[in-house]
């Protein structure tokens, strides 16, 4: 922490500690969480259709998994503040729970572990590196946490090779959807001009 007197919240970014959250950072991270919490309604519906189909095509549904991890990667990629991954994913999970997620309160637990795992990866870089490999590793870490969580809560009895195949499908989906997808979304948003005042 610097000793600069942090002015009123939202003072010019240059004048304050770079790890301090401006009001704008909070609101943008939160609204990304809210937007994805709503998008999860669609994703949950798609999952509900695909998951029972796993009898015919095993594990295809897991290729959607990265969609749930996007807030944990996209929000930190935009605001670049400590805690953004966890905050965005928790807000998304909370909104999802309030909109009657088919996972009930477990979505909060999922959101917590997914956000925390991505957060750890960004913390290891001291929130300084935002290259594609770091983003991809964060996405995979988030998927790994989700994989373990789902193992304990929903799939405790699967054969080991199926667990591993499930993990590979999730990691692949995380890299493609949460990793490259978030990077592409951040690029689109930057081009649209709404990220003025955020680091790039």
């Amino acid at each position: 922490m610097t000793t600069t007197a942090a002015g009123p919240a939202g003072a010019s970014p240059a004048a304050t500690d770079p790890t301090r959250w401006r009001t704008r950072d909070i609101l943008v991270t939160a609204i990304i969480g809210v937007a994805f919490g709503v998008a999860f309604v669609g994703l949950n519906a798609a999952w509900s259709i695909l998951a029972p189909a796993s009898a015919a095509a095993p594990l295809v549904a897991f290729l959607l998994y990265g969609g749930w991890l996007v807030p944990a990667v996209l929000a930190p990629l935009i605001v670049r503040k400590p805690g953004a991954a966890l905050y965005a994913e928790l807000v998304a999970a909370g909104v999802s729970a309030l909109l009657l997620s088919p996972w009930g309160p477990d979505v909060l637990l999922s959101g917590f572990v997914q956000g925390a795992a991505a957060e750890l990866v960004f913390a290891f870089t001291l929130y300084r590196r935002w290259s594609m490999p770091v983003v991809a590793v964060a996405a995979v870490a988030s998927a790994a946490a989700a994989w373990l969580h789902d193992w304990v809560v929903w799939y405790p009895d699967l054969a080991m090779d199926v667990q591993i195949a499930r993990g590979i499908a999730m990691a692949f989906s995380a890299v493609v959807i949460a990793g490259f997808g978030s990077a592409a979304l951040a690029r689109s948003l930057r081009r649209a001009g709404v990220l003025e005042g955020f680091p790039d």
């Binding site: 949950n44 999952w47 509900s48 259709i49 695909l50 998951a51 029972p52 796993s54 009898a55 549904a61 088919p102 996972w103 929903w154 799939y155 699967l158």
Partner: peptide, 9 residues
């Protein structure tokens, strides 16, 4: 549908 998916898997 979700209960069916989890049960079936």
């Amino acid at each position: 549908a979700v209960a069916l998916g989890v049960g079936l898997a």
